[in-house]
Every structure is written in C-alpha cells, then in structure tokens.
Design a protein around this nucleic acid. Structure first.
Length: 508
RNA sequence: GCUCCGGUGGUGUAGCCCGGCUAAGCAUAGGGGCCUUUCGAGCCCCAGACCCGGGUUCAAAUCCCGGCCGGAGCACCA
C-alpha cells in the first residue's frame, strides 16, 4: 500500500509538508463511502467533531462519498432542534475543512434519516424470525441481563417460528407495553463476548418520535440499525469511537444472517479535554439551572460554545486533522487548539488598545484637538487615528503603580509624557521635551470623553468567568457582533454584544 | 471477573502492517536569543521519548512470547 501523498490536501502559502493519514485497507479511489451518524439527542460538542471529521477527511482524501445519517431510533431522548443544531454545526466545520485543508466539497453528499427506514427494518426483522434467527423474548430486563451474564438461554429461545411471528405482530400492534417484549437475535448464549449472547435487536419505546409522532412503537436497537443502514446505503468504511469495538461481532453476525453486504468497521479513540467535561450529562444540568447561558455558553466545549468563544471552525478542523484517526484515547489541552487558532487569527486580526482598571490622566501642554496614530496591525502600514478633544485620557492603574514624579512614559502613538503629580484618582502628566526618547515604557490609553466602556469576560470554568472592565479606543464601537480582534498585550477576543460592549476572551 | 483494544519526549501525534535508508519527524508546552516608540504575537536556537524482560535476525520502535500499565465494553442507549 502506497502512501497517500498524491491525495494529501494542498494548502496554499504553506511550505511545510502536510501530514499524511494512514491509508485505509483495500480501497479504491472514488469508491470509498463513509458517514457520520449522530443521534439527535443534544448539541454537538468537540467530541462529535472527531466523529464527523475522521470519516469526512477519508472520504475526501479518496474522492469518495460522505453521508450524514441521523440515528434517531430512540425517540425518548431525541428532539427536532437537535437535528438542526447538528446540521448547522457540521456545516460550519465542513465548510471550514474545505477552506483550511482544501477538502472539497465541504459538505455531506447526502442526508439520511434513519427513522424513515423503519418499515424496511421491520421487513428484515421478519425475515430473521422466519429463518429462525430471531425470537421474541418476554422476560423482564433484569432476568435477561442475569441470564446473559450466566450464559443460559431462556424458555423463549426455542419457541416456534409461528409463535415468534405472532408475538412480533403483537409487539407491532401495541399489545405489549414498553419493556414487556423484545426481539432478540439468536446467536450463542455461551459466546465469550457477552454482547454476542442473543442481543436484543428491537424493543418497544412508548414515546413520541420528533418526526413521526406515534406512528411507530417498535424501534431497532443500535446494532441492528447501524449495520442495516450502513450496508444498504453503500458505506464501505464505518467509523465510530472505541466503545463499539465489542459490537463489531454482533453487527457482522446480523449482516451475515441477512446476507447483506459487509464493510469495514473502524474504531477510533475518544478525546477528552483537560479540565473541561465534554459530556452532556455534565453540561445539561448547568444549562437547565441557568448557571450557563445556554448551549452556546462560551465556557463549555459544545461546538457553538467554542464558536462563541472565538475558536474558528478552521482551528477545530486543523486540530483534528493533526490529531489523526488514532485509536488511542487522547487527553488534549485547550492550549493546542488555542495555538492553532492564534496562528490563523494573528495575521489578519486588527489590534486595539484597551485600558483595564483605568485611572484618569491629564496631559499638560498637549494642544487639542490632537490626533494620535496607532498601528492597526504590525504587518500593515495602515494606522488608525484617534482624535482627542481634550487633554485627558485613561491609563491602566497597573502602569501607574511604580511611577514616581518625574518618570517618563509614552502614551502609545500619542506622546511622551512626564509625571507631574499622582493622586489616588488622577495622575497629572506633562509633555516631555524629547518626544523621540528611546527606552521609555509604553502605556496604552483611551480618550476620557470618547473611550468605549468595555466588559471582557474571561471563561474560567463552566461555573465562572473573570470579568475585566475598562475603556477601549473609540474605534471599538464600529465592530459587529462576532468580529474577532486582538487586544494589545492581552490577547484575542470576540465581540459578543455591542451594548453594553462585551468581549469574550478567546485566548492570549 | 470476562472480552476486546492500546502503550513513542510533560502532552498529543508520525513511523510499526512491508525490520535497516530518521539511533526517531511534527505540534504544543518548557529554556535561551532576536525584533520592537509594548501584539505575553512573530522569527531563530536548545533540551526532551520508542513500558519492561526474553526471543528471532547481520540488523527491531517495527516480527514472536511473557509480564506490567492504561482504556473501552459487558443495557430492551447510541
């Protein structure tokens, strides 16, 4: 097997060699079909991004097809809003993958909603029963669990095909309540892999389905629906996270009994973010109790939370591209994503002055109106002009701390000044004789009358923010929500709200 | 407990299938330097790893065996 060198994505203006992903077994370019198969039971997180990107990248690397399939076979937990959230977030990521990695087209080729295929699955279930490969079991769950553990069959295992068909019809027609009957695949009750001991393949769920309402009451179990759907939709390589490893055998057994096409099932490791819980189980209560601002709260690693934090979809895509499809569980640090984000942002994002914990300063000898020029970006020739109508500005307290009368500082882009006197709430400055003096400490400032009050929220934990208040340059007012900027010396931030002007701190 | 899967610098990853051509590449974090009328940014440099023990071989991170450690699964969830 040759390397994928020829298929490696191109990135313009990037000299370094692109990393090459391990090749897939026995593939033919143009014939690969992969898929992402999320359950619409919540807002997608960074964890889902790997499940999306790994199969997508492979599909595009081999010029194959990529499917989005909703695994909506447990109506108890699924909601319509989640289908949309998944579509939205996934679109953003895939579009970014096209821009950042050159993997095109940056979208899925086809969308499949599994629940529409329930009738087909019922057909196949009936076929299994008729073949004597499945039976309806009416044991209570705890008995089944125990017997599976012990490797003992129950009395339903040997029921006649007729009896099973009759019971199956009763399941469908509503004569059994939830939990009173389920269809099991007949395999081997002594199989060393417990998952393989006559696994349940259909059960009753008495909940309204977000799309179909009460149309169905019998739903397939994961093992049945994935294998059927993957096989029938032409998937050649199915990726999922490692916990499904023991299910490979079950799914293969189902396919073989039904004589359906087999395909490769590939597992990858899960990721955990150091110090940030990814699980919905953890996040949901925080959203419901309103400690969090919603599922897009910038303190949590839902994709929309990260976007709101100012993490670009491009950064997430590149991160997973560099991470690769490895089977090892990875504990990653947000620093890595921040580093990638910074590399993308740094060359294009404009710089702004910001004065935290301000103190007033008056500048004696400054003739107003005065005009200061500040650089928009170190690599750009352009400057931004700040007009001062009166000789008064805000400067950071912290910079005043060690100042004595007679010390000199430079107000960035405005003037070099000398300290005349310091009082608790105001500092008095005067213009220096030598405006071009070298080695003077440089201080950021904002005009007193036109400085923009700014609130910066620094996400700390899902429970907390650090709030930094201060004044920024007048030009901040021209920014729109979701614009990204760099606060000089502080770091990158995203405009979250214009009134009051609120920034979410992304990272330094 | 049983079954499966892994184990490369602080962290993550490449290489392992087809043993030598890299006594191990990249990223991030760390250390040092450069630049600058302040981007905690950028640029340059440095240091740092093949879980252990046997075996096969002229040659092993790569193959085999044993051990140790870690993860996942063992639902009428996905």
């Amino acid at each position: 097997m040759n390397s994928l060198k020829g298929l490696a994505p191109q990135r313009k203006a990037k000299k370094e060699e692109e990393r090459i992903w391990p090749p897939l077994e026995g593939v033919e370019e143009g014939k690969v079909v992969t898929r992402v198969a999320p359950e619409p039971n919540g807002y997608p997180t960074l964890g889902h991004a790997k499940g999306l990107l790994v199969p997508f990248i492979y599909a595009r690397l081999y010029k194959g097809k990529f499917l989005l399939r909703f695994e909506d076979t447990n109506p108890r937990v699924e909601k319509l809003e989640y289908y949309d959230a998944i579509r939205e977030e996934f679109s953003k990521l895939l579009e970014a993958a096209e821009r950042e990695l050159g993997l095109s087209p940056g979208k899925w080729d086809e969308e499949i909603i599994e629940s529409y295929h329930l009738p087909k699955m019922y057909e196949l279930a009936r076929k299994l029963i008729e073949q004597g490969d499945a039976y309806v079991c009416t044991c209570p769950a705890h008995i089944v669990r125990m017997k599976r553990k012990l490797g003992e069959p129950c009395e339903h295992r040997d029921q006649s095909v007729e009896k099973n068909l009759e019971l199956w019809d009763k399941m469908l027609s509503g004569e059994f309540g939830e939990g009173e009957a389920h269809l099991r695949l007949k395999t081997d009750m002594k199989h060393p892999n417990i998952t393989m001991r006559d696994p349940g393949i259909f059960r009753i769920v008495e909940a309204l389905h977000p799309i179909h309402g009460d149309r169905f009451r019998v739903y397939p179990v994961y093992d049945f629906s994935v294998s059927i759907m993957d096989s029938l939709s032409g998937v050649t390589h199915a990726f999922r996270s490692k916990e499904f490893e023991p299910h490979v055998e079950v799914q293969l057994a189902i396919l073989r009994k039904l004589g359906l096409r087999e395909y490769s099932m590939i597992q990858f490791g899960r990721i955990t973010i150091e110090g940030i819980p990814l699980s919905k189980r953890y996040i949901r209560p925080l959203v419901e109790s309103r400690i969090l601002d919603g599922w897009d709260d910038p303190r949590i690693p839902t994709l929309r939370g990260l976007f709101r934090r100012g993490i670009l979809p491009e950064a997430i895509v590149r991160f997973f591209y560099e991470l690769g499809p490895s089977k090892v569980d990875a504990t990653v640090n947000m620093d890595i994503i921040a580093a990638i984000n910074r590399k993308i942002l740094d060359p294009k994002v404009h710089r702004y002055m910001f004065v935290p914990d301000p103190i007033r300063a008056s500048i004696g000898g400054l003739i107003t109106p005065a005009e200061a020029k500040v650089q928009i970006h170190p690599n750009l020739k352009k400057v931004r002009k700040i007009t001062l109508n009166e000789p008064r500005v805000y400067i950071p307290q912290i910079d005043v701390k060690n100042l004595k009368v007679g010390d000199e500082i430079r107000l960035r882009g405005l003037a070099t000044v000398k300290v005349r006197s310091i009082s608790p709430d105001e500092i008095s400055l005067t213009m220096s004789e030598d405006q071009r003096k070298k080695g003077v400490k440089i201080v950021q400032w904002a005009p007193l009358n036109r400085g923009v009050p700014v609130k910066i929220l620094v996400p700390l934990t899902p429970y907390s923010y650090e709030m930094i208040g201060g004044y920024g340059e007048p030009a901040l007012k021209e920014l729109k929500v979701s614009d990204m900027i760099q606060l000089i010396r502080l770091g990158f931030a995203r405009v979250d709200q214009r009134d009051p002007f609120t920034l979410i701190f992304s990272h330094k």
